[in-house]
């Protein structure tokens, strides 16, 4: 149910963000539903197998979508009661999302082109720094909750809202924001709308994809953004989430989630307008900074425990 929601909302979120950027830049914009229309078009196209690529190339979009789907199913977006509780672990969620990225990077390498390799290399450099930051930030959040189970963290935050303003929490939030930006390939780390060789990261890896495969990747990217924003929202602003399974609570949960995601997306999009892309080799500095923030968060949670 949650997954369907995420699938449905994700392209709309991207559309919303594009629309906001367009408006802020003084353009009319293509409308919020444009990503959905793009996806429909791509899905109808012919399937292409670039010469010399293997199963890895073909399987990557599936893995990417699948990992995001699993996360969408298990993570507490609408309700704290997870569908598959033994998987709803923060570490598992982060690792699953990383798995999707890895699949894409392998696909990029598999093409054997310079672009594919370049994109994979850069993406792996980024993820090598992003993943640790996420894990550390998670630890910072879970030290006080005593568990890394998402539902547990969220419900413990609900019970004890004062925890949110603790230094550990704030530092972790800041770190998470930075890495989510990096992980989802937004400015200033990567420009989702560029196709300039020297600056591409994500786009370089997916350069050879076309048709339905590309549709899957675009969808997955949008879903990942949604998932991350949703996680961010519920980890730090869990209000509104359903703690019981009554229809009313659920409905309230859905609404709260939509509002939160839309707000975060809007802030992100607005922010992007004012940012230029960083040079690739400056990105690690940013990520290292967020890593340190996360580390400080853990340290704070240990010291203040």
């Amino acid at each position: 149910m949650q997954a369907l929601l995420v699938v449905a909302v994700a392209p709309l979120l991207v559309g919303l963000m594009r629309q906001i950027r367009a408006r802020l830049e003084g353009r009319a914009g293509a409308g919020v539903a444009q990503p959905w229309r793009d996806l429909r078009k791509l899905l109808r196209k012919e399937r292409i197998a670039p010469r010399g690529t293997s199963e890895v190339f073909r399987a990557a979009p599936l893995v990417l979508v699948a990992t995001t789907l699993v996360v969408a199913v298990v993570a507490p977006f609408v309700t704290t009661a997870s569908a598959i509780d033994p998987v709803a672990d923060l570490f598992a969620v982060v690792a699953l999302l990383a798995l999707g990225t890895v699949a894409l990077a392998l696909a990029g390498l598999d093409t054997g082109t310079a672009f594919g390799g370049m994109g994979a290399s850069r993406e792996m450099t980024i993820i090598a720094l992003v993943e640790p930051t996420m894990l550390v930030a998670i630890v910072a959040l879970s030290v006080r909750a005593g568990s890394t189970n998402l539902a547990t963290i969220v419900s413990s935050t609900l019970h004890d809202p004062a925890r949110l303003v603790s230094p550990a929490s704030l530092l972790a939030a800041a770190a998470l924001v930075v890495v989510i930006v990096a992980e989802t390939g937004r400015l200033p780390v990567d420009n989702p709308s560029t196709h300039l060789e020297l600056s591409m990261v994500h786009e370089a890896m997916v350069l050879e994809y076309a048709g339905p495969d590309l549709a899957l990747i675009e969808l997955a990217s949008a879903m990942r953004l949604t998932v991350f924003l949703g996680l961010l929202a519920n980890l730090f602003l869990p209000w509104g989430i359903a703690t019981t399974a009554t229809p009313l609570a659920l409905l309230l949960g859905v609404l709260a989630l939509l509002v939160k995601i839309a707000l975060l997306g809007a802030v992100l999009a607005a922010g992007e307008v004012f940012l230029a892309k960083l040079r690739l080799f400056r990105v690690p500095e940013l990520l290292a900074g967020s890593f340190v923030l996360a580390l400080l968060a853990v340290a704070a949670s240990f010291f203040l425990a």
């Binding site: 792996m124 993943e131 640790p132 894990l135 550390v136 630890v139 890593f291 580390l295």
Partner: peptide, 13 residues
């Protein structure tokens, strides 16, 4: 924790 996390990230790469 940071070390384990960093190691995990680099191992992926």
């Amino acid at each position: 924790v940071a070390v384990v996390a960093l190691t995990a990230g680099l191992a992926v790469a």
